[in-house]
Write a protein that binds this DNA or RNA. Structure first.
Length: 275
DNA sequence: CGCCAGGATACCC
DNA sequence: GGGTATCATGGC
């Protein structure tokens, strides 16, 4: 079905580092695996996107997943007209980015894997985990075979050596521990959606292998706490080179995470980082 | 060979 | 509290 919406750029979202299973399949077209489904998205115009899904699935899943009822335009316009030189350029460059509402467990495991890795490497690790522990699906109409992201109970029973064989490195026991905490109910990710960001971050950091940065990514991309402000090596670069380490995220009260995504996307572009 | 990647942890002072 | 070595892996 065809969607018309502003500030909705598929390629920018796919390359924004918040999701790892959204990849270009053809000109102006990306495939996405999420919530046990596979869809393709084609950017027909700046504000027209063709999504290969039913109207029901759009209303039930994808409208929410892509945060399509939130007004990003006002934020972008305000930044472009604002006094912050770096953010003026960053918001202009990444004006089609939206903060996704991804599955919390998939986001947690994905960002545990992400530590000390580059994005292509994170993607291949996640695909290997899905092939080994997810469910095989085939979409005959699109001629695609894909694997769902494994459920917590499955990863909770994974063996350390088996994960190590998937080239996850020392993160193997972090993944098993986090999966067990979720499967047993020791940590309730859905409940954290309703909590404040700082409560969610603190709770996530109780897991081994989850520090400040990963917790903020999970809070932002998996729990949709848009005030979360993850600081990775790229963001450190921005904050020191352009703000002399004096940037105050609370000045963007409640939506610093969106500001962070414009910064992250733009600094990587400046340095010619690969997706 | 060395350095880096959407880092976290243990251990030092 | 702040600094640092170490962790496993791939790409350049």
């Amino acid at each position: 079905m065809r969607i018309r919406n502003k500030n909705f750029n598929i390629k920018q979202i796919a390359d924004s580092g918040q999701c790892f299973r959204m990849n270009q399949t053809a000109h102006n077209t990306h495939g996405l695996i999420a919530f046990n489904r596979y869809i393709e998205l084609q950017q027909l115009e700046d504000d027209v996107i063709e999504i290969s899904c039913s109207e029901k699935d759009y209303e039930l899943i994808w409208k929410d997943y892509f945060d399509l009822e939130f007004d990003y335009g006002t934020i972008v316009d305000r930044l472009i007209d604002g006094p912050d030189d770096f953010l003026r350029k960053a918001a202009s460059y990444g004006s089609g980015i939206r903060i996704l509402r991804q599955d919390p467990f998939e986001t947690l495991i994905s960002f545990i894997i992400s530590q000390n890795k580059n994005i292509p490497s994170i993607k291949s690790c996640i695909e290997r985990i899905c092939e080994a522990y997810g469910e095989r699906q085939s979409d005959s109409s699109k001629g695609v075979v894909y694997y769902t992201f494994p459920k917590p109970e499955i990863l909770a029973d994974a063996k350390k050596e088996d994960l190590r064989a998937l080239k996850l490195g020392y993160r193997d026991e972090y993944i098993i521990g986090a999966a067990r905490a979720v499967a047993s109910g020791k940590i309730d990710l859905k409940a954290l959606i309703a909590c404040d960001n700082d409560v969610a971050v603190k709770s996530l950091k109780s897991l081994r292998g989850v520090g400040d940065k990963v917790a903020n990514c999970v809070s932002l991309f998996g729990l949709h706490h848009i005030e979360a402000f993850p600081i990775d090596v790229w963001m450190k670069r921005v904050l020191s080179e352009y703000y002399q380490d004096k940037f105050d995220p609370t000045q963007y009260n409640g939506y610093a995470g969106i500001i962070q995504q414009y910064m992250f996307f733009y600094i990587r572009h400046i340095h010619g980082a690969s997706v």
